[in-house]
Design a protein around this nucleic acid. Structure first.
Lengths: 93, 93
DNA sequence: AGTATAGGCAAGTGTCCACTTGCCTATCAA
DNA sequence: TTGATAGGCAAGTGGACACTTGCCTATACT
C-alpha cells in the first residue's frame, strides 16, 4: 500500500495514469508519443519504462505481452482506498 | 494539488494524518508523544514540525495559535479529489 | 525577575530516486 | 537472413528531501 503513495507522488507517473485513463491498452512507444504530445512529458523511453515498473509494483498498471508488443492497462482500485483511510468528518462548519 | 501527492508520499506524514484523524486539535508536543507511543514514530520534534509545514502547505492540516499553544487540525477535503481524478471503470470483468 | 514550557529558524548531512547512457534481446517483415 | 521495430538490463549522476543539530523567541507560572 505504501507503494501506491510513492507511485502517485511523481508528476510524470500521474500523467501516465491520466493518459491510460483516457486510452487503455497502450504500448510503451504509444505512451511515449502521446505523453509528449498531449501531456507535455519529455521523458525518454527508458524513463517511462521505469515509471511503468513503479506503477506495476503499486498495482496501478497491469502489463500484458502479446507477440512483440506489451500493452499497459490502468487499475484504479488501489486509489479508492486512499480517501477511505482518512474519512471526511461528519459536519463541516 | 501536486503538494497533496507529495505530502502523503511520506510514511511519517501519513501517520500524522492517522493520528489527527483519531484525535483533532493536538499541539506539536502532544502529537510527538502520541506518534511515538501509538504509531511507532521516532522522529524528533523538529522533524514532526517540518512534516506539519508540508501538510499545511498541502492544505491537509490547519494551524491555530492560542496563547503559547498551536493546535493542529486535519482537513481531508483535498484527499477526496484523488479518487475523482482517475475514475473507476464502469464494468470490471 | 527568573525558570520552565511550547515552538521557530537555519545550516549541514545522508539517502533515495528520477533520469540518462550504453548495450543487449526478441519479434516480425522483406 | 538481414534490417527494422519493440523493449529490457544495468551502471552512473544529480538533485530533492527527511532528518539532525544548535541556537533563538514567546508565553506562562511562581
Amino acid at each position: 500500500m505504501a507503494d501506491v503513495f510513492k507511485a502517485i507522488a511523481d508528476e510524470t507517473r500521474r500523467a501516465i495514469l491520466d493518459e491510460l485513463s483516457e486510452r487503455d491498452e497502450q504500448t510503451l512507444f504509444e505512451l511515449c508519443s502521446r505523453l509528449a504530445m498531449r501531456h507535455a512529458v519529455t521523458s525518454s523511453r527508458q524513463a517511462v519504462s521505469q515509471h511503468l515498473d513503479v506503477l506495476e509494483a503499486a498495482g496501478l498498471v497491469r502489463r500484458e505481452k502479446r507477440g512483440r508488443y506489451t500493452f499497459h492497462t490502468i487499475d484504479t482500485r488501489p486509489l479508492a482506498q486512499i480517501a477511505e483511510r482518512w474519512p471526511a468528518k461528519e459536519a463541516p462548519q
